[in-house]
Write a protein that binds this DNA or RNA. Structure first.
Lengths: 229, 229
DNA sequence: TTAAAAAAATGACATTGATCATGTGATTAC
DNA sequence: GTAATCACATGATCAATGTCATTTTTTTAA
């Protein structure tokens, strides 16, 4: 596995920056950003921030994956969003002026840069392109969540799992999906046992294959058909 | 019932404006806003915009209520948000640059003002307070939807209905809740029959009373207890 | 390498809540 | 005023899915 802990990252040659909120930055803006950020290595299952605490800044994922989740009453996690390289997480609560309503934890070892609250807010104030990018991002995510809610309310677990697997493939790209069954269940919104049973069904129906915990998508179209999308 | 069709509304003395996104406006800004808006009367169940169409501007509710909903596969509505006087609806899609992913329809007769896309975007560009208000609003709503998703995934219909009734009371204030059983079911995310049965249970347990279709909350605390919040 | 712990998998069972059928009451249109 | 339509309500049924118990496999740590 990639040894992420020794990577040295500058914003200038950060590949993840290209598609990120900071993708429009160039020249001295990049240098400026680089001087404001601090970069650190996160182990698997290490929290970036937790529900109830106050935001201190934003996290820009250079490499790795992060789950954003809320906790229901009995403490059960509901994963709201999975963030991959290039995504900036944690800025929503900074605008709302309230403590975090969700938590963020790494799903694998990750390199993640941090930008302090005031630096970030100054950037937003002084850069219209960044600002528009953020408004666009917030709006898109709002639309995504409307779909999420509708799926949750109207689709069966089987349909939601099929859809989730396709989404997961988009996040994991060429890699195989590598999530614990519990996390997967918390993403789909079901019990772990139910999730495992349905994965088995999908395996028998040749939609997927499993290699230990890793899941390989064999028939994306088929899954989309099951999902009814 | 109030005869809303003949109201004449100016932004200056619009009570709903106070708590709205435009609450910070004063002096010529208000006059300016007033000259840009057009105000119209909407009948009950009249659409403001529908899923798939492109945003032409934003709608500011002076009086009345609006449901924001998505449609699932078989066309079943899922109500994502209920908007009351003072709320501005329809601006999210304007920032995302995509067609509406949701629809908006009045729930009762309403007075609603319209501000065209370019006028609104100019306002946003030139007014930092408005902009911050919008970012705050978007972020808060994002957090609300995380809770919504978690409730959907982890709570029983009974718990969700209890919680929904409390939310509805906050929207209807001193008035009684006046929603069709179908709309209520589409808000809670259940079948109409199930909703009706549970309302009956709550009636027997003295949490609510019904007057024809109207629902009166008798025991808000009790409902919150049932909801587990 | 092996023991211990954690995660995954399977089975049995109970329960929720959706669906379909039907009836009753309220509102609308002519 | 009456028919027709729509919303509300209730009953019966059953599949989907959650829960609890147990076993097997995988991972971790000594």
């Amino acid at each position: 596995m990639l040894e992420k802990s020794h990577k040295h990252v500058t914003c200038e040659n950060c590949l993840s920056r290209e598609n990120s909120l900071f993708g429009s930055f160039c020249g001295e803006k990049v240098d400026n950003l680089d001087s404001q950020k601090s970069c650190s290595y996160f182990k698997k299952n290490q929290p970036l921030f937790i529900e109830g605490s106050s935001p201190r800044g934003v996290y820009c994922i250079n490499d790795g994956k992060v789950k954003i989740f809320a906790r229901g009453e009995e403490g059960k996690e509901q994963i709201i969003h999975l963030a991959a390289a290039g995504e900036v997480v944690g800025f929503r609560a900074m605008f709302s002026g309230e403590p975090y309503k969700v938590s963020a934890t790494t799903l694998e070892e990750s390199n993640i840069c941090f930008i302090g609250k005031s630096d970030f807010l100054n950037l937003v104030d002084s850069n219209a392109t960044l600002r528009n990018g953020i408004m666009k991002e917030l709006s898109k995510e709002l639309a995504d969540r409307a779909t999420f809610i509708t799926n949750m309310a109207q689709k069966s677990v089987r349909e939601r799992l099929a859809f989730s697997l396709v989404m997961l493939q988009d996040i994991y790209k060429e890699e195989m999906i590598n999530l614990s069954r519990e996390d997967m269940a918390n993403f789909v919104g079901t019990a772990t046992e139910t999730l495992i049973r349905l994965l088995k069904d999908f395996k028998e129906e040749k939609f997927i294959a499993t290699h230990a915990r890793r899941v390989e998508i064999l028939d994306r179209e088929g899954l989309l058909r099951v999902a009814g999308n």
